[in-house]
Design a protein around this nucleic acid. Structure first.
Lengths: 149, 149
DNA sequence: TTACTTGCAAATCGTTTGCGATATA
DNA sequence: TATATCGCAAACGATTTGCAAGTAA
């Protein structure tokens, strides 16, 4: 679209390198914490600006499905995700992209369709564990109540 | 889960009625503007609280796919949506829900899967029109430049 | 040398929350 | 009457932005 005279600054380079190295789906704040170890004076604003630029360039991808905070994926190729409803953690979903979805809307929508988003939602192993502990506690209490009557 | 002593206040009733009458996918702020016409002293906080309660009850559904603002759907049944990347407008997608998606992760994820989200993204008719106008203008300018040389 | 980028801080935006007053069941 | 809910305003968390100084090309 628009030709841009972008510069590969130390900040931009480091952010991209760390994302590719860590291979997880970090929020802007998490990226900030990571790169701060090597560039202590970097600002959160710079991190946001660079994540934006890098995703516009197609070097990374911005994930903004559900949940409050956006996350950034080192892998710009199309693939799906699983999101934890409790803590917001995101992992790759091990299934291939659905084909021919867009063509199913041919002629029956007046939208100009660009693509689709798909994600599984549920509880990550850590939060599922916590949730199970909570239920066990609850059952214990109910049993105690019954015994004391 | 938890038995709640909910009350059907005038505010709660009106919000639900208006959503069901309008049958569009409104943001909290849009709901606020609508109900304010009949209850001028209602507060935005009340609207947020009631939209939350109503979606917990399953009377409506909260949409929090992508985009910044949440939207609320009068129809609590499972169905998919199309979202405009430009203005955030949401409409129903005229395709049935995908079946058997969750079972495809059986045994290959340590997440506890609850369900999935799916949405098409693109440009709504209004924004597609604007975008087309913009491109036409651009082409005209390029032609003028060429002529003047 | 140019103008893209930065660090910093203040601003913005959608949403949530604490409070004392109100009204529903 | 008990307490769920309200209106109001302040608080919040994530993200964006204005600006003067710094720096890649």
């Amino acid at each position: 679209m628009k030709a841009r005279q972008l510069r590969m600054t130390r900040q931009r380079k480091l952010i991209l390198e760390e994302l590719r190295k860590i291979k997880r789906h970090l929020s802007a704040d998490e990226v900030y914490e990571v790169v701060r170890k090597q560039l202590p004076r970097i600002s959160l604003g710079t991190v946001y600006r660079n994540l934006e630029v890098l995703s516009e360039l197609g070097e990374i991808q911005k994930l903004e499905y559900g949940g409050a905070v956006k996350r950034f994926d080192w892998n710009p190729a199309q693939h799906y995700h699983i999101r934890c409803l409790e803590c917001g953690r995101i992992d790759d979903a091990p299934i291939p992209p659905l084909a021919h979805m867009e063509s199913r809307l041919q002629g029956i929508t007046d939208y100009q369709i660009d693509g689709h988003h798909f994600e599984f939602v549920g509880l990550c192993p850590v939060c599922a564990e916590k949730s199970a502990d909570y239920m066990v506690d609850k059952l214990k209490k109910i049993r105690l109540d019954a015994d004391s009557r």
